[in-house]
Design a protein around this nucleic acid. Structure first.
Length: 493
RNA sequence: GCGGCCGUCGUCUAGCCUGGUAGGACGCUGGCCCCCCGAGCCAGCGGUCCCGGGUUCAAAUCCCGGCGGCCGCACCA
């Protein structure tokens, strides 16, 4: 694909999204609409719901996870304990003269070569700036307004305006609810808690549509386990021959290695992690992303989040490069340990008579980014007219019912079929314009099957089924329609 | 946040330089036609010209500020 064709793909997705109602900028009719906020339209909602249903099926249900739905506003202490108040932060300074804003740590490292650790105080940085006479790189002005920019949205609760924050990741609910869930849901280690919901990050410069938003959906899974038993994991046996696409630190390309090989060679630290990496890779294959466009890239020390011990990013290749869709982190005891310390509640649990503070392995998925990647992957521009080749089980509209001619008795018969299907399937009725025009329009929004009422229907109660991906047509008796649809639209494994 | 380019019906765009009634294509709606892959004909709908301010008799057009978009830099726990 040429560079021009690549950028065209992104533009085509945006055009399709705006023109057909997948998603749109929020507050777009007002001039002061801030960047990084997007609304899902009718077709986007359907796609997102089905994507999340697939996640629920292939991860939550498959693995017997518990699911919660937590508050988006959490107290200040939650983020003291999680480290976000201190670490989810960039040190910045401003030029007195030209008002340019600099990342202080980056500026110091660039000018002096001094490595600035995460925890260096503003005072220390101010001292270094003074000693080395670091000035504005643009105009040579003096640096001022040393401060931390925290990327969490701060809120004031109630009349006194008590400090609270919109969660920057959904998983903190899982950690702070862990104790009650453990005590009430009768689970033993290892087990997982899942949650899908909104998170909020005050990005400095959000760009590229659904790929970087200030308000976005995450679907997160936190697996609690005893670190001593991370290799005693019978569930992993059936996937030991499954081939992961791993890209370890220092490699430029992913390797196809079975879980068994990855474990034997020490690429992956334990069976538990190999198992969950397999589940997440399989999930994206089932969402229609070709294997060769998926990789699990290991993150080095400089790239990992402040809480991560071992980190793999599931990435998908698009016209815009490799996009990070899922952060797979071993968070160790960072979170339960932090909450134990700050709340005073003991988070240790009994495992075979032994008290352990569970370790946590997470699969933190970006839903909106995934939706973009699925759309881009599905969009076929080769045919001259765009065709959205979504997996049938992700299509917002599953079936369209069309009278061949927009007149009686075809329309009544088609409406009758539409009425009989609309509660069980996501169906649309369309009688506008010519049949060819309707097929093209329905292809563009990814409807996998059309049912056409034609002359023969009136004689023998059969209809034409027309398939999006092949453009093939076949006749079917109305009696068997429901079975055919169910078969074509079900999750394929 | 910085620099460059840009912002006009749902979409793509002409008009901007050189100020004077916002035009086209596609789409959409209705009708005719009665049609299996964007047919044709007729009629119609659709625009705070991104927002605010300034200059002017007059601003889509010129100037300033803001917001947004794209590209590059930076950022992306």
């Amino acid at each position: 694909m040429s560079k021009r064709e690549e950028s065209r793909k992104y533009e085509e997705i945006i055009r399709l999204a705006l023109e057909r109602g997948f998603f749109m900028p929020s507050s777009e009719i007002y001039g002061d609409a801030p960047a990084g906020f997007w609304d899902y339209g009718p077709l986007g909602v359907g796609l997102k719901r089905k994507f999340i249903e697939l996640w629920r099926r292939e991860l939550v249900k498959r693995d017997g996870m518990l699911e919660i739905d937590g508050a988006q506003v959490l107290s200040k202490k939650v983020f003291q304990a999680s480290g976000h108040l201190e670490s989810f932060v960039d040190p910045i300074a401003r030029c007195k003269r030209c008002k340019a804003i600099y990342r202080l740590d980056k500026l110091i490292e660039e000018k002096t070569g001094i490595h600035v650790p995460e925890r260096m105080s503003l005072e220390e940085m101010r001292k270094i700036v003074k000693e080395h006479d670091i000035r504005c790189g643009r105009c040579g002005g003096e640096l001022t307004e040393f401060s931390h920019f925290n990327m969490m949205f701060r809120l004031g609760i109630g009349v006194i305006g008590a400090d609270a924050y919109l969660r920057p990741e959904t998983c903190q609910n899982i950690f702070i609810d862990f104790l009650r869930i453990y005590k009430t849901m009768r689970k033993n280690l290892p087990f997982a808690i899942a949650q899908v919901g909104k998170s909020f990050r005050n990005e400095i410069s959000p760009r590229q549509g659904l790929l970087r938003m200030r308000e976005f959906y995450q679907a997160e899974i936190e697996v609690f386990f005893n670190p001593k038993k991370a290799n005693e994991f019978p569930k992993a046996e059936p996937i030991m021959d499954y081939e992961l696409r791993l890209q370890p630190i220092g490699k430029d390309e992913p390797l196809e290695v079975t879980c068994r090989e990855a474990l034997n060679s020490g690429l992956i630290s334990c069976k538990l992690i190999a198992y969950y990496l397999s589940l997440i890779q399989q999930f994206y294959e089932k969402a229609g992303i070709p294997r060769e466009k998926i990789r699990l890239r290991q993150l080095g020390e400089d790239e990992k989040a402040f809480y991560a011990v071992e980190a793999w990013d599931l990435e998908v290749e698009t016209s815009l490069g490799w996009i990070e869709l899922v952060a797979c982190n071993n968070r160790g005891t960072h979170d339960l340990g932090g909450h134990q310390k700050f709340s005073g509640h003991e988070m240790e649990v009994l495992d075979d008579g032994e008290k352990v503070l569970p370790h946590v392995f997470e699969l933190s998925m970006g839903v909106d980014r995934s939706i973009y990647c699925i759309l881009e992957n599905a969009l076929d521009l080769e045919a001259g007219k765009p065709v959205l080749r979504l997996p049938p089980h992700l299509a917002s509209i599953e079936v369209a019912v069309l009278p061949l001619l927009s007149k009686e008795p075809f329309t009544s018969k088609a409406r009758e079929i539409y009425e009989s299907l609309k509660l069980e399937f996501d169906v649309e009725y369309d009688d506008s314009g010519s049949i060819g025009r309707r097929y093209v329009r329905l292809d563009e929004i990814g409807v996998p099957i059309c049912i056409t009422v034609d002359h023969q229907t009136l004689e023998d109660n059969t209809v034409t089924l027309r398939f999006r991906d092949s453009a093939l047509q076949l006749r079917a008796d109305l009696e068997e329609i429901v079975d055919i649809l169910k078969n074509h639209l079900r999750y394929s494994v």
